[in-house]
Nucleic acid binder design. Structure first.
Length: 571
RNA sequence: CGGGGCGUAGCGCAGCCCGGUUAGCGCGCCUGCUUCGGGAGCAGGAAGUCGGAGGUUCAAAUCCUCUCGCCCCGACCA
């Protein structure tokens, strides 16, 4: 491809709305262009990368025996009423009406559609197991689209769905898929990890995310030497030893804390550590009021609480409601003396506490030496606080958890009968008995993978495409496009490489060399073939390896061999 | 949804507070000359409903109201 003919517009400056490196570089390097918030066009360069990733995904899915299909994007809303997700997906679901005012949705994923397909088509256990997948555009009305194609409202995803008669069969496919995801990410040249995760609106119990490491990634994960890995929504820890435990007193002691409302203020005022305090966070879940107790130096993990309460719509009480419930301003809430009907959930880390300092439910007052089980009785104990780097691992109880950031590219779920049950999707088993499908689903963010690849592979000059997904194998740059000899060599080399099946971007633009060098660095093709008049006099051609920032001079005849060496088994 | 910010040429911005006649700058774009191994120089040029609507005023990019769009932070830390 000749750059002079290719639609590859580059910018020296990045647009003001691009925050993270991948977004800035994808705009600057002509990979994507924004149409409106969270909606992007893939330009030729970006589309080439996208297709390469798609193909890797397709090959690996086919290898598992999964079959590609294409389901509709436009879904009748009734399907979502059946599964209950018209409510549960909430405002994220893009909805629209047809001319007869019938409600439709733009598919955010296809559990309902594929389950509907299975329930009408798969009648017998003899047809199981079955795994179907597709690669197509999905829609989610994100609360806050950002980072370009990383969190978009319209994006391309590979989604696969498996149907089974037994949990053993599901387990087998689940493992096969996990393995396939590993292979996909490794083939894309992306360093990754599988972690335990929260299932969110998809549902089901067992699920794992595949995270590609990147400094600016939106996901935070925790890992332990023992092999435990989980994302921040899911991770549990055994906490860490308390520095100076609060002693239990014969009975709670009231202390005046005038005007001290935050954990920081109170701990400073009482000359103690934030960890000695216990935060009481008041939530409303439906009609119920829930008091969540967590260590003062930690945050509540709302995902965990929502899951525990089986209510995705929990919300904190407003100040007025807190006054009514506790008789005190927010900031002085505590577990002692709350109305009986209040559900008290204590974080598991509080089991290690002897005494604690809590709000007294009275303005300007806290209680010291409080003992859980004596001064108040928690309704239940559960892990509801966030994990911190350096905590002891909950799994092995010994090593410290380490945190890293990354981008979530894959998420696989054991759905069990969540959808088959609500949508009455059944088959006949060997005994002729009607049974619900046991299902799994497996998502992979294809368009997001392009962004993740850039996020994980760039330097201060531009993108560094991994070899397996680079839009072109090499970029050929004749220094002086008006030098006849240079261009003769360029044309013949270009023809030869193209003939041999290499995809070469020929920068034949009549621009200064320096300008085109900068462009080449920005665009990030792994190999640059530079043709200079001086070197050509001795039949030498310069090969520049972008990622290593390294050049070598080779004979014209050896150029093709260098390419073959670099790409090795990739082609 | 709450708070904040921004919409002025394709991109990045100034001008607005303190209203005034031709609305500027950089990059990019077009023409010419010179230059030509790391985002060239000079000269000339094209390009803007100042997001939209309404209002105040002799006069609005500038003040007021509404509206649309975009961005950031928040929507756990009592």
């Amino acid at each position: 491809m000749r750059w002079s003919k290719l639609y590859l517009p580059t910018y020296k400056e990045s647009p003001s709305d691009a925050e993270i490196p991948s977004h800035q570089l994808m705009i600057r390097a002509g990979v994507i262009r924004k149409l409106t918030a969270g909606v992007y066009t893939f330009l030729p360069l970006g589309y080439r990368v996208l297709k390469k990733i798609e193909n890797i995904v397709r090959e690996e899915m086919n290898r598992t025996g999964s079959q590609e299909i294409l389901m509709p994007i436009l879904h009748p809303a009734e399907l979502y009423e059946e599964s209950g997700r018209l409510q549960n997906f909430g405002p994220e679901l893009f909805k629209l009406n047809d001319r007869k005012n019938r409600l439709f949705a733009l598919g955010p994923t296809h559990e309902e559609v594929v389950t509907d397909l299975a329930r009408t088509e798969i009648r017998s256990y003899r047809q199981l197991p079955q795994c179907l997948y597709q690669i197509l555009t999905k829609f989610r009305d994100e609360i806050r689209p950002r980072f370009g194609v990383m969190r978009a409202r319209e994006f391309i995803m590979k989604d696969a769905y498996s149907f089974h008669e037994s949990h053993e069969s599901l387990e087998e496919t689940y493992r096969t898929m996990a393995d396939a995801y590993r292979r996909i990410l490794n083939r894309c040249g992306l360093e990754n990890i599988m972690v335990e995760a929260d299932a969110g609106v998809i549902g089901g119990d067992v699920n794992h995310e595949f995270i590609v490491f990147a400094e600016e990634g939106e996901s935070e994960i925790f890992t332990c030497q023992c092999g435990y890995t989980a994302n921040s929504e899911r991770a549990e820890s055994a906490g860490r030893p308390l520095k100076s435990p609060e002693k239990i007193l014969a009975s709670p002691m009231r202390v005046e804390t005038p005007g001290q409302k935050t954990i920081e203020e109170v701990s400073r005022f009482l000359n103690t550590e934030p960890s000695q305090l216990v935060k009481t966070l008041l939530y409303r879940s439906g009609e119920e009021v829930v008091a969540a107790l967590i260590p003062g130096d930690r945050s509540l993990n709302e995902t965990k609480l929502a899951k525990l309460l089986q209510d995705p719509w929990i919300e904190t009480l407003d100040d007025e409601s807190i006054r009514k419930l506790t008789g005190a301003e927010a900031g002085y809430s505590g577990p002692v003396g709350l109305p009986d009907k209040t559900r008290i959930i204590a974080d598991t880390l509080l089991d290690d506490y002897e005494g604690m300092i809590v709000g007294a439910n009275e303005n300007d007052t806290h209680l010291r030496g409080v003992k859980m089980g004596r001064d108040f009785e928690p309704t239940e104990t559960a892990s509801i606080s966030t994990v911190k780097s350096g905590d002891r691992c909950a799994r092995c109880g010994e090593s410290e958890l380490v945190t890293r950031r990354g981008v979530e590219l894959g998420h696989i779920f054991k759905l069990d009968t969540k959808y088959s049950k609500s949508m009455n999707a059944t088959f006949l088993d060997q005994q002729g008995k009607e049974r619900e499908f046991i299902m799994g689903c497996y998502g992979f963010g294809v368009s997001r993978a392009v962004a993740a690849a850039v996020e994980a592979n760039h330097d201060d000059r531009g993108i560094l495409w991994p070899l397996s997904i680079t839009p072109f194998d090499a970029i050929m740059l004749p220094i002086n496009v008006s030098d006849t000899h240079t261009m003769e060599v360029a044309e013949s080399l270009y023809a030869e490489l193209t003939e041999a099946g290499w995809e070469v971007l020929f920068d034949d633009r009549d621009l200064r060399a320096g300008f085109r060098f900068k462009d080449a660095d920005l665009v990030g093709i792994p190999i640059r073939i530079t043709l200079g008049e001086r070197n050509l006099k001795t039949n030498k051609i310069e090969i520049y390896h972008r990622r290593d920032d390294r050049s070598e001079l080779v004979d014209r005849e050896d150029v093709i061999g260098v390419l073959a060496d670099v790409y090795g088994s990739l082609r």
